[in-house]
Amino acid sequence: MYKIESKDIHLHYGDFHALKGININIEPNTVTALIGPSGCGKSTYLRLLNRMNDLIDDVKIKGEIIIDGENIYSKGVNVDSLRKKVGMVFQKPNPFPKTIFENVAYGLRVNGISDKNYIEERVETSIRQVVLWEEVKDKLKKSAFELSGGQQQRLCIARALAIQPSIILMDEPTSALDPISTAKIEELIYELKNQYTIVIVTHNMQQAGRVSDHTAFFYLGELIEYGATKDIFTNPKIEQTQNYITGRFG
């Protein structure tokens, strides 16, 4: 069974037809990379998966997105519950102006959890999962802004993990980071897929190659090609994909 199924998704921003009949099925415990030039619709598609586009005025969505067998755009779907299941990490690290500990505990607290021991246990587990524990264990009460960019991004991933989602969406999670921090996040993505289903938007094609099992190439709102990353990067079936990944686009 697929973790995420997208069936003939159309999305309009006003008159602009931003996604044109997207069909993608994503298996559990895999990493799927969405690639394509700016404005191709990849981030729009990503944001559909936890209904982030709901917040934008004049958006019309057609089609179905089914997560764990349920259409997340059906009436009566609780968006808060959905977002507990589908965590998100953004392009720029965006820690809250709080301590390191409270950043990770935040999601638990807003979900009504007050058991101190449980919160402490979840915070430590999540920070360990992102391989940040050794670096921050002695300064959990310090502001998250004291961390480096790479550490902040790992903290944001820990914050997403704390509420135990099963899907993590990442929108260019390393584009603001140096190569070493980027490598750490990529290794983390590789580790995390054992427990989570990950969908990542990236402008860095080598990153898609390194971290993902499947790659989807978007262009002008259409899904041009979707397949195993190995196949996309060694023998893409569509000429446009080949031109894009070899840098001969346009």
Binding site: Q206, G209, R210, T229, K230, F233, T234
Partner: peptide, 8 residues
Amino acid sequence: ENIFALFT
């Protein structure tokens, strides 16, 4: 071939 293509 895969390692060249995927990991540069």
